[in-house]
Design a protein around this nucleic acid. Structure first.
Length: 444
RNA sequence: GGCCCCUUCGUCUAGUGGUUUAGGACAUCGCCCUUUCACGGCGGCAACACGGGUUCGAAUCCCGUAGGGGUCACCA
């Protein structure tokens, strides 16, 4: 059974980068007829917040992703402790006593003298006696995983063969001084216990992955297949993280970006597949190909998305869009949709047109009522059909000396209060005689 | 600064030494359709980061330069 996971930390809201990772994991899981797990990585209790957790779930659902199982790292601490003890007994993990300031200072010194800021393993040389001494003095240890010096090679699902020399990396801290577990270890334990088969995440995790491969080995666990997506940048090529705030899912919703538009874009960007609109996420699953992704960083083009989002309304099918209608829903028929869809670019606009045609739409009375009256008198005295419009227009032109285009503009304004919209020949049929008369009468 | 990755039209990309006047999609521009706007149809513009090699021949291989991204947390 193939099993993938999305593991957000509930320390903030989802942004486009996160949701792309979530989406690609989801799509690959479903493509492989596998299982998609949501794992809440809340080991950092200080920064984690239940509010974010709830919002993340809402956002995932909004985007059309449902998870098959869910787990929270904060509820697995006992398991982590067990594994830690095991690793300590195998001497793969060792206690350290430097405090953060000390490490920071050391790093800066290494950096300024042109050396890579790698931990010097000073605490590794501590004798048992020295360790006991520190502990009895009230000093609390944090723990590091001893990284064996080797070249780690894996066949990356998107980057091909990858190589990382662990001698260029510090022994990772896996337990903090206060006893809380760090992601590096917790994640491996979970991936191992829950039998995750594929780990797809951003390129920012490649070093982690190499380190974690060694931890998987230490735990005698099966190493999942790894895939590292290139990161998205902003349109100028700068890191996206710097502008996270403006690209939160919340903000996209406010900008009326439709979930299908977003996921259609995010599932294909950075790959060799063309961005096309899907009606349901199943289309995306069918087309998904992890091998089509490029190693080069991808620009997140918000203008593209906005434009694409407009197209959404031309291509989305009736049933999908109907679910989104909240007002005057009874009037939202297939006929109405086919009539209006090329003239709207947001749900709000659909609601507006429903109101114009069927609701208590208010029309400005500051119009020329002489003209209104004249037009009204020219209205063909017969049931409205597809010929009514040309007849009506003809009647008017016989009586007034005005360009047709002006008459058309006037009628559109009188009837809908707008300067553009769907063609009037159909519009008057939808509107009906009663409303037409009502809106042209000057004393209403 | 060390290490890793990347660099083809505005954007996402195809391209693995000759089939390439570098292909597609989206955007853009023009025309047609349309008694509005839009949709739709047709067409145009538009790119191999730079410099050296290797080769009969290089977007493609090698070296260098420049630029971008990532990472080097008691975050995930």
């Amino acid at each position: 059974m193939n099993k993938l996971r999305f593991a957000p930390s509930p320390t903030g809201n989802l942004h486009v980068g996160n949701i792309r990772t979530a989406l690609i994991n989801y799509l690959l899981a479903k493509k492989l007829s596998g299982h998609f797990m949501l794992r809440i990585d809340d080991t950092d209790i200080e920064r984690s917040n239940l509010i974010y957790e709830e919002q993340i779930k809402k956002d995932l659902v909004w985007a059309g992703m449902n998870w098959d199982s869910e787990v929270k790292q904060s509820q697995r601490i006992n398991k982590y402790k067990e594994v830690l003890d095991l690793l300590i007994s195998k001497q793969l993990v060792y206690p350290c006593f430097e405090d953060p300031e000390e490490l920071n200072l050391k790093r800066k010194a290494q950096l300024s003298s042109g050396n890579p800021p790698i931990y010097d393993r000073k605490s590794l040389n501590l004798t048992d006696k020295e360790i006991e001494e520190r502990i009895s003095n009230g000093k609390k240890p944090h723990y590091r995983f001893f990284l064996k010096s080797e070249k780690i090679i894996w066949n990356d699902l998107v980057r091909g063969e990858c190589l990382l020399d662990t001698s260029s990396v510090s022994d990772p801290i896996i337990v903090r001084e206060d006893g809380r577990f760090i992601y590096t270890l917790a994640s491996v334990i979970d991936d191992s216990d829950f039998k995750i088969t594929h780990i797809i995440r951003g390129e920012d995790h490649v070093t982690n992955s190499a380190v974690q491969i060694q931890i998987f080995k230490a735990l005698n666990s099966q190493i999942p297949q790894m895939g590292h997506l290139s990161l998205m940048t902003d349109i100028d090529g700068g890191g996206l993280s710097k502008r996270i705030g403006s690209l939160s899912i919340d903000e996209l919703k406010k900008q009326n970006i439709e979930p299908q538009a977003l996921t259609s874009y995010l599932a294909k960007i950075g790959s060799s597949q063309n961005v096309e609109l899907h009606n349901s996420i199943n289309h995306l699953i069918n087309e998904f190909d992890i091998n089509s992704f490029n190693k080069a960083p991808t620009k997140f083009d918000y203008e593209f998305l906005k434009n694409f989002n407009i197209k959404f309304f031309q291509l989305i099918n009736f049933n999908t869009i109907k679910e989104r209608i909240t007002e005057n829903k009874a009037y939202f028929t297939k006929e109405f949709w086919d009539f209006i869809k090329t003239n709207v670019s947001s749900i709000d606009q659909i609601h507006e047109w429903l109101d114009i045609l069927y609701g208590n739409f208010y029309i400005d009375k500051n119009n020329n009522f002489e003209t209104k009256n004249l037009y009204l008198n020219c209205f063909p005295d017969q049931p409205i059909d597809h010929l009514t419009w040309s007849k009506w227009l003809e009647n008017i032109t016989l009586k007034v000396n005005d360009k047709k285009i002006n008459i058309i503009k006037n009628i559109r304004a009188f009837l809908t209060g707008k300067s553009s919209g769907p063609e009037l020949s159909s519009l008057i049929i939808f509107l009906g005689k009663e409303k037409i008369f009502q809106r042209l009468k000057t004393d209403n």
